[in-house]
Design a protein around this nucleic acid. Structure first.
Length: 542
RNA sequence: GGGCCCGUGGCUCAGCCAGGUAGAGCAGCGGGCUUUUAACCCGUUGGUCCCGGGUUCAAAUCCCGGCGGGCCCGCCA
């Protein structure tokens, strides 16, 4: 089998094996996110896309698979520095200890904190996946699926306590402990009400923050997080769930939850998978993306500059425990990696023999694409070329004008399929956003609005530049080769020193910097009109 | 205290799971092409695979013990 050895297929095998042993008809994959702030692209790695890839593999094998993401909306809002800063002034302080779902939207545009920060992640999930992912919130689960298991923990509180206390050496729960943490009806906090009595579906509690003594429904609270996680496994019948490295420590949360699952809830814990976090590099600095610290970019922001397949390819081709560092200035290289996988995929399809590395690249490509693969290897527009091109094109008409130039310069020949057209269109738009937001300086150039008069006066080769302009606009074929030829011819009589100055002035006139992208491709991209305007009209005037 | 990841030519890294002649890209050097502008093409230099032990006919790869760098957990989630 080609896929042997690929980590995603190994997980799929393990999950399949588990399902077989347990005789399950439907396999359930889970992921969990607490919406404590910025929902960055790192969170797609383990909790969403790993599951999606495993689901894809298992579905291909004929299994019915459900994929869920649980949002931990009942967790307490901690009021970390960056979280507080989302609010005006000191307003945020009021909400410390509130369940996330009860914290208002600091920007005022959504129903609450969770909905606001979930939007740029959840709202584009269907673009990063096939969309067949069910999103649930713990707030709702407590009213339904988690009800039974909550009661089970309360009934088995002694056993539960003996297990949990193994992991709470210095701060064990006391003998009268009741495993439910209610929301205080007086001060709104979920992080301090102590349950003292259970009466059917009601819990009586005393709040340590405000001293309030009251009763509320069980569902208006939450389980201690270890119980909660294990409880979700049981309530939703989970077969597989990845978890971040913070949960992976031996004797840590995953281990303690496994023990609760087997000894208290009497279930087989799901297959787990520890994964590393994703970092972002900005200049020389490199930081793990973080939700409550608001570090990173959201999936929505990623879509502005790159296709989702590109990120999927990075994630699928990297073993889960390896750290990934995303550098947004390297988007062109990330595209090349996806293209590499694409070429490998089509080589395999054509029956060519592949190296092991290419085999793997082909598999990663297959996992990364979101639509059926095209018939044959599609045209691969270099992202870098696109970035150069778009800087000289009218934004409104970017696709048609780009296509014209790409054909004129013979980068594209022949008819394009729908797939190719769509992809080119997408890359052009994304590359143009990338130039604005993240591209390194050397990639950028601008067609300057107007040449300052004092500069114009000091140009040594002003007449020669005008002459070149005239030669260029009379060219029959506007393509790189012709332009290059004309330029070589024009500068052939100059010596090295003169030529150097000539080119410097050329760039200053064209783009306002004394150097820039290669002259011929640049001019090909800019078009005749711009040449006429810059080299002739602006120099002749006055 | 416990655990994870990484350590391979100047740089970035692949190879390690399934042991079998040390690889790629960039940089360097030589040449070609071209007036270059994050170029391209051909050729080429360069490596005690962090160190020490073990297993083996054979170790970058497996096992044990160190060292250096990054990170996680220690009762919040």
């Amino acid at each position: 089998m080609l896929e042997m050895g690929h980590w995603l297929f190994e997980i799929a095998d393990a999950v399949e094996q588990r399902a077989k042993v347990m005789g399950k008809r439907e396999i359930v994959l889970n992921g969990g996110l607490s919406v404590s702030g910025l929902q960055h692209i790192g969170r797609l790695r383990g909790e969403v896309l790993t599951g999606e890839a495993v689901r894809k593999i298992l579905e291909k094998r004929g299994y019915k698979v459900k994929q869920i993401i649980v949002l931990y909306t009942q967790d307490a809002w901690k009021g970390k520095e960056k979280q507080l800063k989302q609010f005006e002034g000191e307003e945020g302080r009021k909400y410390i200890g509130y369940p996330l779902i009860k914290v208002p939207d600091p920007k005022g545009c959504h129903a609450n904190w969770v909905e606001h920060y979930w939007e740029d992640f959840g709202g584009v999930l269907d673009k990063f996946s096939d969309g067949k992912i069910e999103v649930v919130r713990t707030t709702d689960l407590y009213a339904k699926e988690l009800k039974e298991v909550t009661k089970e923990f309360i009934e088995k509180r002694e056993l539960t306590r003996s297990v949990v206390n193994k992991y709470r050496g210095r701060n064990p729960y006391p003998e009268d402990w009741i495993p439910i943490e209610p929301v205080c009806q007086n001060c709104g906090r979920i992080d301090g009400a102590k349950a003292i009595k259970i009466e059917g579906d009601l819990v009586e509690y005393i709040c340590k923050h405000c001293g309030y003594h009251g009763k509320t429904k069980l569902e208006n609270g939450k389980l201690n997080w270890r119980l909660e996680w294990a409880g979700i496994w049981k309530a939703l019948d989970i077969d597989f769930e990845p978890f971040g490295k913070d949960h992976a420590t031996p004797g840590g949360s995953r281990d303690s939850c496994v023990e609760l699952a087997t000894t208290v809830l009497k279930i087989q814990p799901p297959i787990g998978l520890p994964y590393e976090w994703v970092a972002i590099r900005q200049g020389k600095k490199e930081m793990d993306m973080g939700s409550s610290d608001f570090i990173g970019i959201t999936p929505k922001e990623w879509l502005e500059i790159a296709d989702p397949e590109v990120l999927r390819y990075i994630y699928f081709s990297t073993p889960p425990k390896k750290r990934i560092v995303i550098d947004l200035t390297e988007i062109p290289q990330y595209y090349e990696q996806l293209y590499h996988g694409e070429r490998a995929y089509f080589m395999r399809k054509e029956g060519k023999s592949l190296s092991e590395e290419e085999e793997e690249a082909a598999i990663n490509y297959e996992l990364s694409i979101l639509t059926d693969p095209p018939e044959r290897l599609p045209f691969q527009l270099s992202y870098y070329t696109a970035a150069l091109l778009v800087q000289s094109l009218p934004k409104e008409d970017i696709y048609d004008s780009a296509l014209k130039r790409l054909r004129a310069s013979k980068i594209i020949a022949g008819e394009l399929s729908e797939f190719e057209k769509e992809r080119i269109k997408s890359i052009l738009i994304k590359a143009s956003n990338w130039v604005e937001k993240y591209a390194p300086e050397q990639v950028k150039y601008a067609v300057r609005a107007e040449l300052p008069a004092e500069l114009k006066g000091s140009l040594r080769f002003k007449d020669s530049l005008i002459e070149l302009g005239n030669k260029l606009i009379s060219l029959e074929n506007w393509n790189e080769d012709e332009i290059k030829k004309a330029m070589i011819e024009h500068t052939s009589s100059m010596n090295d020193e003169e030529r150097k100055i000539f080119y410097r002035e050329f760039y200053i006139v064209m783009i306002g910097k004394d150097s820039g992208p290669r002259a011929a491709p640049l001019l090909a991209a800019l078009g005749k009109d711009v040449v006429k305007e810059k080299l002739i009209e602006s120099l002749e005037s006055k």
